[in-house]
Write a protein that binds this DNA or RNA. Structure first.
Lengths: 125, 125
DNA sequence: GCTTGACTTGGAGTTAACTCCAACTGCTAC
DNA sequence: GTAGCAGTTGGAGTTAACTCCAAGTCAAGC
């Protein structure tokens, strides 16, 4: 699979795929004889994983570290597990915070709806 | 309240407070005769609001727009409500996505825990 | 009246994560 | 064999959101 095919399939731009590879987030992408990248299904799965983690807020730096550990083989299983657990914890906190903010927004919107009905009040901000 | 007091109280750096003000996120902060900012309780509440929305991912741009509308008075109530509703919707989507990612991480960590117990397998990534 | 320390400003610098570009290479079709 | 297109590289440019800095001001204490 060429870079543009992988790009379309995973909804990640070719530039970003090359960027991720250089950053160490895509281990050892195959090349054709002519030097052109040839993505496998496994590469796509890894891209999906990276995309998912990135969208949740994990940094390039952390993912790079994860794949560095991965390359060092089975003896880094524990370290990788712990890295993921740490990130999971951080995510959990952001999740709870997001929930609070959603509630706050809901409340604020309800206040606006009341103000719009009564056509009288202005709010603090 | 001086800028450093407000800074400590709200856990936002003085530089960021000045930056927010310049960006239009803090409407009309009072000044002393000597030109020094004098924050009120209301300012602090607004800073808290901005902080909360920022941490949830609302952009400076969107908040700036919100406060611009606010300055234009009661006739923008509906527009402000709709702006908040739009942002709420986006947040909701990110929230659901985050939930999925958390589940995915939980699963991956459980796979690691199994691999660590059996001391045999390596994972795909 | 002078030092000190917190404040002011405009503007430059930083960081993360892309995104774009120019110059080059190498198949494929004609 | 050459036009055209998709791919390659290193490196420059962009964007958002701060963060830092230098040069200046002001009020308070000695």
């Amino acid at each position: 699979m060429t870079i543009s095919e992988a790009s379309q399939r995973c909804h990640v731009s070719p530039d970003t795929l090359r960027y991720y590879e250089k950053a160490g987030l895509l281990s050892d992408v195959n090349r054709t004889a002519g030097g052109i990248r040839d993505y496998t299904e496994r590469d796509c799965a890894q891209i999906e994983f990276v995309k998912c983690m990135r969208s949740a807020g994990l940094s390039i730096e952390v993912l790079k570290k994860y794949f560095e550990l991965f390359k060092r083989g089975k003896r880094t299983l524990k370290a990788r597990r712990d890295l993921l657990a740490t990130e999971r914890q951080a995510l959990q906190e952001r999740f709870v915070k997001l929930q609070d903010t959603l509630k706050r927004l809901d409340y604020k919107i309800s206040v606006y709806d009341k103000a719009l009905k009564s056509k009288t009040k202005e709010l603090k901000f």
